[in-house]
Computed example of a mutant assay.
Amino acid sequence: MQKIGIFFGTETGTTRLIAKKIYKLLGDDNAAKPLNVNRVTAEEFLQYDALILGTPSYGVGEIPGLSAGCLEKNWEEFLAQFGKPNLTGKRIAMFGLGAQERYAERFCSSLIALHQTFADLGAEMIGDWSTEGYQFDHSASVVDGRFVGLVIDQRTQGMHTDQRLEQWLQQVKPQLLQKLQRAA
């Protein structure tokens, strides 16, 4: 597939909203329409060599899903049917949503669980993001002083979302498009 695949899990619809914003910023020429992981197959996912994945934070640093308290199927259930394919050759950037004031002790910690899952399957993970401008006590998603992907707090910092998306996409878009050119 010669477009960037955008896949997300969502509980309240906010992750879907951010995925749609990313799609709009990338444009239809560069990206496929965002798809909810509770409505796709592994085969649909594996068609893409460059991907952007989004996740809400649920549970205590768990992959979002029914066992973490989600009301609908999410990443946990997708990964159960996904199996353990070799993702070598795939390039993945991730974004995660969290609430830094409400969950300061585990802000956006679900992002690292999903990030590690795809890294362990061989994917090249890109798109780390600065912790500057956020206020929280702890996040498992901080590695070497940076988030492993873009972190969005729509609840208390929604006024920064558009700017953060634009800056992050300036960083990851060329790397994702480069992957598509090499695959062609």
Score class of each variant (00 low, 15 high):
residue 1 M to Q: 09
residue 1 M to P: 06
residue 2 Q to M: 10
residue 3 K to C: 05
residue 3 K to E: 09
residue 4 I to M: 04
residue 4 I to W: 04
residue 5 G to P: 06
residue 5 G to W: 05
residue 5 G to R: 04
residue 6 I to Y: 01
residue 6 I to E: 03
residue 8 F to I: 10
residue 8 F to N: 03
residue 9 G to I: 08
residue 9 G to Y: 00
residue 10 T to M: 00
residue 10 T to E: 05
residue 11 E to M: 07
residue 11 E to W: 03
residue 12 T to G: 04
residue 12 T to Y: 10
residue 13 G to E: 13
residue 13 G to M: 09
residue 14 T to S: 12
residue 15 T to Y: 06
residue 15 T to V: 09
residue 15 T to N: 09
residue 17 L to V: 11
residue 17 L to E: 13
residue 18 I to G: 03
residue 19 A to M: 04
residue 19 A to R: 10
residue 19 A to E: 09
residue 19 A to V: 07
residue 19 A to Y: 04
residue 20 K to I: 06
residue 21 K to H: 10
residue 21 K to N: 07
residue 22 I to H: 02
residue 22 I to F: 02
residue 22 I to C: 03
residue 22 I to Y: 00
residue 23 Y to M: 10
residue 23 Y to D: 08
residue 23 Y to A: 08
residue 24 K to C: 10
residue 25 L to I: 13
residue 26 L to Q: 12
residue 26 L to C: 12
residue 27 G to A: 14
residue 27 G to P: 12
residue 27 G to W: 10
residue 27 G to L: 11
residue 28 D to V: 11
residue 29 D to W: 11
residue 30 N to L: 13
residue 30 N to M: 08
residue 31 A to V: 04
residue 32 A to L: 02
residue 32 A to S: 07
residue 32 A to G: 04
residue 32 A to P: 04
residue 33 K to G: 02
residue 33 K to F: 06
residue 33 K to A: 08
residue 34 P to Q: 00
residue 35 L to K: 11
residue 35 L to I: 05
residue 35 L to W: 02
residue 35 L to V: 02
residue 36 N to L: 04
residue 37 V to I: 07
residue 37 V to C: 01
residue 37 V to G: 00
residue 38 N to S: 12
residue 38 N to P: 05
residue 38 N to C: 08
residue 39 R to G: 13
residue 41 T to K: 11
residue 41 T to G: 15
residue 42 A to K: 14
residue 42 A to E: 15
residue 43 E to M: 14
residue 43 E to I: 15
residue 44 E to P: 11
residue 44 E to Q: 13
residue 44 E to I: 15
residue 44 E to K: 12
residue 44 E to Y: 15
residue 45 F to R: 01
residue 45 F to A: 09
residue 46 L to R: 08
residue 46 L to P: 09
residue 46 L to G: 07
residue 47 Q to V: 11
residue 49 D to N: 07
residue 51 L to P: 00
residue 51 L to K: 01
residue 51 L to V: 01
residue 51 L to Q: 01
residue 52 I to Y: 00
residue 52 I to H: 01
residue 52 I to R: 01
residue 53 L to I: 08
residue 54 G to Y: 05
residue 54 G to R: 00
residue 54 G to A: 01
residue 55 T to I: 03
residue 57 S to I: 13
residue 57 S to R: 12
residue 58 Y to R: 14
residue 58 Y to F: 15
residue 60 V to I: 15
residue 60 V to S: 15
residue 61 G to A: 13
residue 61 G to C: 12
residue 61 G to Y: 10
residue 62 E to Q: 13
residue 62 E to M: 10
residue 64 P to Y: 02
residue 64 P to Q: 03
residue 64 P to R: 02
residue 64 P to T: 07
residue 64 P to E: 11
residue 65 G to H: 06
residue 65 G to Y: 07
residue 65 G to A: 07
residue 65 G to I: 06
residue 66 L to K: 12
residue 67 S to V: 11
residue 67 S to Y: 10
residue 68 A to K: 08
residue 68 A to F: 08
residue 68 A to E: 14
residue 69 G to N: 12
residue 70 C to P: 02
residue 70 C to A: 11
residue 70 C to K: 02
residue 71 L to D: 14
residue 71 L to W: 11
residue 71 L to T: 13
